[in-house]
Design a protein around this nucleic acid. Structure first.
Lengths: 239, 239
DNA sequence: TGTTGTCCTTGATTGAGATCAACCCGATCA
DNA sequence: TGATCGGGTTGATCTCAATCAAGGACAACA
């Protein structure tokens, strides 16, 4: 686990023009507080595949994703893997009250993060109900997403799972201003499989089927939703 | 949805000797605050099977479970059901920042709850970082549990699911001082099936298999863990 | 230019759990 | 006393996705 700092003592020089600020935890802060928080933080970068932190390790920092995608996953002893989510810019990683990391996180492509030492962040947050309120809200949204994913894992067919994933991914990207014609899928098929409780072969077959049915078009870098309404119907569990 | 209040204007007379207080949100409060909060709340009771609130309805109250068990579930349009969790005494229901209920909740057996109007609770919490901190922690624990359940739903066999459920249920009960020789299972087989992403038949068969293998003994009201280490091993995903 | 490795796709077969169907058991009630 | 009903179990069969197996596309590199 190698952490590469972007210039020592740089202290997140770019908070004022941070592209993730509006979605991130920082949205709850005013200009002065933002500067104070920046003093506590530093920017870190990880190359593709690098591990940011590992499940069950002591959590000494919180992170706010600045750019890139992370996969968050849990492993069983026999190495079965469940990806519990993908983190995108603005997502906050780490929760007070849990001393250890509940899952592992590694970079899907290059990633940059704001890193906050846990104690100093906690001290900073202690006196700022606005920030705590925001954290409750973020945790709530995360919980809602987790529950929606439980429905997917427990009660949906392979085709519904894939459609649901694509629609959810599209909506998350457009929520952070990354919407577009082509839906980029930076993660591998195996990652998608381990996220949806499928095998890589079933993911591949289902992508192929959706393409045959004219719902999507597959490219190396992602897919285009040719028939979004059909995908949304599958995603919703209709038909 | 019928709400039966335990005597009008009673205002939760029993906060000082509440059996759930140590686990509940109220643990974050001092004596004075507790009395203030009690002024906002009222005790409500639901009979077995009654709906406390329904998914997608406007959330006007928060709840803290005082006694009994609730099933929390989401439905797909074609009535497939996923039980996202069971709530026990001390559990907090509802999250700020989400105007609508994310799931439905109904009583498994008789249930009593403390009900707080959402706005007055929010106002009360606004100025109390201790309480907000506690809410972040509770949400964090809930999130960790949800992620663990994703692993179960996505990556485990029927036998592992059942064993995992029994061990998790045992640990939650003992965490609120309800441990014992016999592990009570107030919910029906169908509830367990919809919680674990199985059918009622598979649940029944798997219970039978575990009993044949000497891991558990089945009673009308629950099970006894004859071979807890074996169940824990299955639960952990070993073997 | 061929070699290697990674990622993805496709085909054949298998198997765990779903589905369909029957029956048991205890509670309730006429 | 037996009829009904809800909840649970068990057996037979089917099906969807897993597993096993092979090969294709493409990039990195010697």
């Amino acid at each position: 686990m190698k952490i590469s700092v972007l210039g020592e003592g740089m202290h997140c020089r770019s908070c004022h023009d941070c592209t993730a600020r509006d979605f991130a935890i920082c949205a709850a802060l005013d200009k002065t507080e933002l500067r104070e928080l920046a003093q506590l933080s530093r920017h870190v970068r990880f190359e593709s595949g690098a591990t940011v932190f590992a499940q069950a390790n002591l959590a000494t920092s919180f992170f706010s994703v600045h750019a890139g995608t992370l996969r968050l996953y849990k492993l069983l002893p026999d190495s079965r893997r469940q990806i519990v989510g993908f983190a995108l810019p603005g997502d906050f990683l780490g929760l007070p009250g849990l001393p250890h990391h509940e899952f592992s996180a590694d970079a899907v492509g290059r990633v940059t993060l704001c890193q906050f030492p846990k104690e100093s962040f906690a001290t900073f947050a202690e006196k700022r109900p606005q920030l705590l309120r925001r954290m409750v809200e973020l945790a709530g949204h995360e919980l809602a997403r987790a529950q929606e994913h439980m429905v997917l894992l427990g009660r949906r067919s392979a085709e519904e799972k894939i459609a649901s994933f694509l629609i959810g991914w599209r909506d998350r990207l457009s929520g952070i201003g990354r919407g577009g014609e082509i839906l980029p899928l930076p993660m591998k098929r195996l990652d998608i499989a381990d996220h949806l409780g499928l095998t890589i072969e079933t993911v591949s077959r289902t992508f192929s089927k959706l393409e045959r049915d004219g719902v999507i078009q597959i490219f190396a870098s992602g897919v285009v939703l040719l028939d979004a309404p059909r995908a949304e119907a599958l995603s919703a569990g209709v038909s």
